[in-house]
Nucleic acid binder design. Structure first.
Lengths: 176, 176
DNA sequence: AGTGCTATCTTGTCAATGGAAAGATTGGAG
DNA sequence: CTCCAATCTTTCCATTGACAAGATAGCACT
């Protein structure tokens, strides 16, 4: 066996993402991740400290990915909403961890930095803070409900778009 | 020690609600609950089977409570949204479990029945299915974001109301 | 009262897990 | 080539969820 895995940290985060997506955060086992990576059960502790550390890294990566997705739809509030939902559905493991304070180390610098990136991307969408908050809520709620199975259908984006439109489009005349 | 607790099932669900609210579902320990109730570590298994069984009962109770809250605001979509958010904030332990398929026994009859009650209460809000879906998404998203700390403020209902209004009010002329 | 039945709870046990401690190995800087 | 820091391993412990088997208590029925 090689003493050095080479890129254990990255491998662990990727494995954690799939594991959380399939079995939920509670079903994640540090020892299971270590087995998958072919290292001893104590190897993860070196990179992440503890279980919450792994999930913290996963959440941070999630916020970074989300910030990128939002930036790509810059300017268009509706497109950003669709991007938000698409991100959540494409990265369920990340999403399941990003907004759960009980699972991560809230004060972790890497997490805070990633959160700020995503926060900035959200703030750049519109100068109307309340409109942004509303758009965020619909997108987040729709994504959560879709992932939980409460809302389902053949096409996420297709189902999300008309819902997002209601909270996003044509409201400027009431808030301006 | 009394061999019979008297109302262990109810006591366990109540204790689970506070424990989940404080430490999250992962921080819940069956043995901890048993200690709180003053019974042996195996007593919970008789009533709930396993850990997921406890959370299933908690989720079912949550859906029943939610259905009641929604029914009380019957007819008014905006008031129902506020009721939804208020329920989530008042019962964070229940809410944290209700929409997480990885934590419960999805096929449990009691859970399914409670879900149907809540589902019916939602459907009774408006004949416009898409409007209901939009209202549900905003309310759910706002509640989740508020509970996660992503949105905060002095008053939940006060902060939620204008956000809900955007997705709820004055849209009927576009959908009718 | 006495008898059996069933739900409730206990004790004992096991494998798996997270975490801590201490040591081994590696690669690279000087 | 030596030293050092990062990475990983081995060993160990307490806690946990789950299971099996047995004890107790309330209750219906006679």
């Amino acid at each position: 066996m090689n003493y050095h895995h080479g890129d254990l940290r990255r491998a662990m985060i990727a494995a954690a993402a799939t594991a959380v997506a399939e079995r939920g955060p509670a079903g994640l086992s540090l020892r299971g991740l270590a087995r998958l990576a072919g290292v001893s059960h104590a190897a993860p502790a070196h990179h992440f400290g503890d279980k919450a550390g792994v999930l913290t890294a996963l959440a941070a990566e999630g916020f970074t990915l989300l910030a990128t997705a939002l930036d790509e739809a810059r300017g268009d509030l509706l497109a950003s909403g669709v991007a938000y939902v698409t991100f959540a559905v494409d990265h369920p493991g990340h999403f399941a961890v990003m907004f759960d304070r009980s699972l991560v180390h809230r004060e972790d610098p890497g997490l805070l930095a990633a959160e700020r990136k995503a926060s900035a991307a959200l703030a750049d969408l519109t100068p109307d803070a309340e409109a942004a908050r509303a758009a965020w809520s619909v997108a987040h709620g729709f994504a959560a409900l879709w992932l939980s199975g409460a809302i389902s259908g053949p096409d996420v984006a297709g189902a999300a778009e008309p819902v997002l439109r209601r909270a996003v489009a044509g409201r400027s005349e009431l808030s301006g």
